[in-house]
């Protein structure tokens, strides 16, 4: 559905306009706003990562906060202890998270449906405790976490750090989203979806289910891990209590709001999980959870394909030529 929208010639100017707007945005808004949009972009990568696994491949994960935490910690430790420049941590994080995700995907092969959700949920519950463990304290900084310094723009460019970080993150967003779109458009994408819809038929058609499922698990963990690393760079801080089970649940909220099985919906989902708490915490601390719960129930009941499907529907209704 998404690829169709990109290909339709009538939508091309719109896509170009959105891209221009995204690139030029920091020039028109304050540093704080660019920082907020940067965070949305970071979360969009994480939501996309979870969507690749859960939405497209049908493997339900309630523990992606753990991979986000892994990415954030690997990046932070590399910068803090090994003095690696911030931009060079991303490839390392990608490799580490892909391998860890792939390895976690092996036992996940044997778990169907509920049981995978349960195992990953347990992972999410145990993550903060693992990060606090004294044996790792030398690297992770224990309960206090790790503080980092804010990256300077390169080549002595005269721009604020927040703007530079925005463009730095945007670059990763573009690369990762284009890669995902291309991957899912081709035969690999069809295989991934076939495994979700009809695993037996897929196997019969010659698709190596196990290899695809573990690889998708690895790629998904890699996306979410990169998002974690970017988040550590943007916030200049990691601590165990930022990676509770609720983080994993919020990613799932983002997937459902944006649309299960939709790439571009990730931006809507990410914006939702970041903007709603900002607005609702003014009402009460509990309002966020209640709002999330209600939106989840309503969407999954009335619009199970998420808000993005609603946007597409309106776009088609608006551009339909009268017969």
């Amino acid at each position: 559905m998404q690829s169709q929208m990109i290909k339709t010639s009538s939508s091309r100017p719109l896509v170009a306009a959105v891209c221009m707007l995204a690139i030029l945005l920091p020039l028109f808004v304050s540093d704080f706003r660019s920082f907020q949009v940067t965070q949305i972009l970071v979360y969009a990568i994480a939501v996309l990562g979870l969507n690749l696994l859960t939405g497209y491949n049908g493997q339900i994960s309630l523990g992606h906060g753990a991979f986000f935490a892994l990415g954030a910690y690997v990046a932070a430790i590399l910068m803090d202890k090994a003095g690696v420049p911030y931009w060079a941590t991303i490839p390392v994080v990608a490799a580490v998270c892909f391998v860890v995700g792939f390895i976690f995907g092996l036992p996940a092969l044997r778990l169907a449906g509920h049981y995978l959700a349960l195992a990953t949920f347990s992972l999410a519950l145990a993550t903060p405790q693992l990060l606090k463990h004294p044996a790792l304290e030398k690297w992770t900084g224990g309960v206090q976490g790790i503080f980092l310094s804010k990256p300077q723009p390169p080549f002595g460019l005269a721009m604020s750090q927040d703007r530079w970080l925005y463009w730095f993150v945007l670059l990763h967003v573009v690369v990762l989203f284009v890669c995902a779109a291309n991957l899912l458009r081709g035969p690999v994408g069809r295989a991934i979806r076939a495994i979700r819809d009809q695993p037996l038929a897929a196997e019969t058609a010659g698709i190596d289910n196990s290899r695809f499922k573990t690889t998708v698990f690895g790629i998904s963990a890699m996306y979410t891990g990169i998002a974690g690393a970017l988040s550590a760079i943007v916030l200049q801080f990691v601590s165990p209590d930022s990676f509770t089970m609720f983080l994993s649940i919020y990613f799932l909220v983002g997937v459902v709001v944006g649309g299960v099985g939709s790439i571009w919906g990730a931006f809507l989902g990410a914006a939702f999980i970041l903007i709603v708490p900002n607005l609702s915490s003014e009402v009460s601390k509990s309002a966020t959870g209640m709002l999330y719960a209600m939106v989840l129930l309503l969407l999954i009941w009335r619009m199970p394909n998420g808000l993005w499907s609603g946007v597409l529907w309106m776009w088609r209704a608006a551009t339909r030529r009268p017969a």
């Binding site: 309630l62 649940i249 909220v253 959870g289 999330y292 719960a293 209600m294 989840l296 129930l297 999954i300």
Partner: peptide
């Protein structure tokens, strides 16, 4: 839905 109930 279970997650929504959890949060709710």
């Amino acid at each position: 839905v279970f997650i929504a109930l959890f949060l709710g």
